[in-house]
Computed example of a mutant assay.
Amino acid sequence: MCLAAFALNADPRFPVVIAANRDEFFARPAAPMAWWRAGEVDVLAGRDLQAGGTWFGLTRTGRLALLTNVREPERQRPDAPSRGALVLDWLTRTESAAPYAASLAQGYNGFNLITAEPGDGPWHWISNRAPAPVALGPGVHGLSNAALDTPWPKTEGLKADLGQALAASANEEDLADRLFTALARSEPAPDAQLPDTGVGLLRERLLSPRFVRIPDPDAPGLARYGTRCSTVLVRHADGRVFVAERSVTADGSWLPAVVHRLPPQR
């Protein structure tokens, strides 16, 4: 993912709600969210068909992770391992966040990993740009390509829209529709509000919307890089989980949403 907002125990009907966009080069092959086997564990996740990892996934027991990269071009190593392996690593193991973070191999480019343990277990933010896992308390949190809750315009906007959607929605479908609309907003942020991450003003502008679309100079009408899919997850108070994903193609066409409903997780 490159943008995510998540509400934890902010509404008694829906104790967990996640709205997230994944941004990537369109030339990088990927499979949509589906059930597949990772080691000895069934995971519901998309799949990076180039490196084999994923960006957002959960298990039948409710163990969950999502990943964003840290935008820091001056520290990027082209030979670093794929960060998508981190999500699968978390999903296929059983330890809690602190020992897991301590066991992580070195050498990854900058990452943010949100982890959730099964049932009502704790949530944490783990990053190789932070000294220790940070426990996440109740409320609405946001994450893009910087540290947790860094107030980038698109992160703050999505957090606000998530809070409003929770207050206004009558059911999971209504909530999902509102969140997909929020994730599809393509307005760039004003220059005065843009971060300076070392990629230059033009690229900061192009990356500032929630829904990113950067044209391919060699293929008119197609995007070279941008939002590839939007995902909404809603967990009900009784443990049932609703997950919906919408994918978009390089020509801007939206594919039909794929919906998964999981029984109460234990």
Rank of each mutant, 00 (worst) to 15 (best):
C2K: 03
F6Q: 10
L8R: 15
N9D: 15
N9Y: 12
A10W: 05
P15A: 12
V17K: 07
I18P: 09
A19Y: 05
N21D: 07
R22V: 12
F25V: 09
F26T: 01
F26S: 05
R28W: 14
A31H: 02
A34S: 11
A34Y: 01
R37L: 10
G39P: 06
V43I: 08
V43T: 06
R47A: 13
D48R: 03
L49D: 15
G53I: 04
G53F: 02
T54P: 00
T54I: 11
L58F: 08
L64M: 14
A65Y: 04
E72K: 06
E72I: 00
E74G: 14
R75D: 08
P78Q: 03
A80R: 03
A85G: 15
A85Q: 13
L86C: 14
L86N: 11
D89G: 07
D89T: 01
L91R: 02
R93N: 08
A98P: 09
A98S: 11
A98T: 15
L104S: 10
A105M: 05
Q106R: 14
Y108A: 03
N109A: 10
N109R: 08
N112E: 01
I114M: 14
I114S: 04
D120E: 14
G121P: 03
W123A: 12
W123L: 14
H124T: 06
W125E: 05
I126Q: 01
S127P: 13
N128G: 13
R129A: 13
P133Q: 06
H141A: 02
G142K: 00
A147V: 09
L148V: 13
D149P: 03
D149T: 13
P151F: 05
P153M: 09
P153H: 12
K154Q: 11
K154N: 11
T155V: 15
G157C: 05
G157K: 02
L158P: 09
K159F: 09
D161M: 08
L162T: 12
G163K: 06
G163F: 07
A165K: 03
L166A: 02
A167C: 05
A168I: 01
A170R: 12
E172G: 05
E172A: 15
E173Y: 07
D177V: 00
A184E: 09
A184H: 13
P190A: 15
P190E: 15
D191N: 12
Q193W: 06
Q193N: 11
L194R: 08
D196Y: 05
G198D: 04
G198C: 10
G200C: 06
L201M: 10
L202G: 04
L202D: 15
E204Q: 14
R205D: 10
R210G: 11
R210T: 14
R213Y: 09
D216M: 09
D216Q: 09
D216L: 07
P217H: 04
D218L: 12
A219V: 01
P220S: 06
G221F: 04
L222N: 06
A223H: 13
Y225I: 15
Y225K: 07
T227H: 06
C229R: 09
S230R: 11
S230Y: 13
V234D: 11
V234I: 15
R235T: 12
R240N: 12
T249R: 12
T249L: 14
D251I: 09
L262G: 02
P264M: 00
Q265W: 14
Q265V: 12
